[in-house]
C-alpha cells in the first residue's frame, strides 16, 4: 500500500514537472512574442517589404521591442506593416520616427528597424502610421553591379583591341611603339637635324664677318642686348 502511494507521488511529481516545463516554454515563447506584456500598435507603409514576415522582430536602438503582427497589401505598390511594440518603449518613439526594413545579420531574418524621431516631437499614439524609408533592395544592388560589370567588360574588350592594334604596329602609337624602322628613321633624322644645326651655326658665324651683313647683324645684336638689359 505504501509502495502504491509512493508510486502515485512519483508519478505526480513527474507529471507536474513536465507540465511546468511545458508551461514555462509557452510563457517564454509568448513573452518573446509580446503576448504577456502591455503593448501598443503602430504601422508603416512600404513599397516593398523584401520578404518580411509576420512574427519578425521590430528593433529600436538595437533592442528587440516588438514583432510584426500583420502585413497587408493596400494597393498594387504599397504594403502596410502592422507592428506590436512594448509599451515601455513608447516614450522613446516619436511621431516623426521612421521605419526601415533591415536584415538580422548577413543571412538572418528580415527585421523592421525603428529610427527615433527628432527630440521635441510628441510620442506615438495607438495605431499611428509612421514614415518609412525604402529598404536597399539586394536585387537593385545586384542590378547595378551587373551594369558596372557589363561596362567594365566593354571597356576591357575595347582596351584589348587597342593594345592588340598597338602590338601589331597599327596606328600612330602602334608605329611609334612597335615599328623599329620608324625609330631608326627618327634617330637618323635627329642626327641630321643636329648636323644641320651645326652647319647653320657655322654659316651664321661666317655671315657675321661678311662686309655686307656685319652692320645689320651688329645692329640686331645691340637691340638684343638692350632688351636683355631691361
Amino acid at each position: 500500500m505504501k509502495n502504491l502511494t509512493g508510486n502515485k507521488i512519483r508519478l505526480g511529481v513527474f507529471v507536474s514537472i513536465s507540465l511546468a516545463l511545458f508551461i514555462a516554454a509557452i510563457y517564454f515563447i509568448g513573452e518573446r512574442q509580446q503576448l504577456f506584456n502591455k503593448t501598443f500598435r503602430t504601422s508603416a507603409v512600404f513599397k516593398d517589404i523584401s520578404g518580411l514576415q509576420v512574427g519578425n522582430n521590430v528593433r529600436f536602438s538595437g533592442i528587440n521591442v516588438g514583432i510584426i503582427e500583420g502585413i497587408e497589401q493596400i494597393t498594387d505598390s504599397t504594403v502596410k506593416v502592422d507592428m506590436v511594440i512594448d509599451e515601455h518603449t513608447r516614450r522613446f518613439i516619436k511621431k516623426n520616427a521612421t521605419a526601415i526594413i533591415g536584415s538580422d545579420g548577413l543571412m538572418g531574418n528580415k527585421i523592421v528597424i525603428l529610427i527615433p524621431g527628432k527630440v521635441g516631437s510628441t510620442e506615438l499614439s495607438d495605431n499611428d502610421i509612421i514614415g518609412s524609408t525604402q529598404p536597399i533592395n539586394i536585387d537593385d544592388i545586384l542590378l547595378k553591379i551587373k551594369l558596372t560589370s557589363d561596362n567594365a567588360a566593354l571597356i576591357t574588350a575595347n582596351l584589348s583591341v587597342i593594345i592588340e592594334s598597338i602590338r601589331n604596329g597599327k596606328g600612330t602609337i602602334g608605329k611609334l611603339v612597335m615599328d623599329t624602322v620608324l625609330a631608326e628613321n627618327v634617330e637618323k633624322a635627329l642626327i641630321n637635324i643636329k648636323q644641320g644645326a651645326g652647319g647653320f651655326k657655322q654659316n651664321m658665324d661666317a655671315a657675321g664677318h661678311n662686309i655686307f651683313l656685319r652692320g645689320f647683324i651688329k645692329k640686331k645684336k645691340e637691340e638684343q642686348d638692350k632688351k636683355a638689359g631691361k
Binding site: 508510486n7 502515485k8 508519478l11 507529471v15
Partner: peptide, 13 residues
C-alpha cells in the same frame, strides 16, 4: 490507469 501511467511514464523517464 494510474498504475499503468507510473509503469509506462515514470519508469521510462
Amino acid at each position: 490507469f494510474l498504475k499503468q501511467s507510473y509503469l509506462i511514464g515514470y519508469r521510462s523517464l
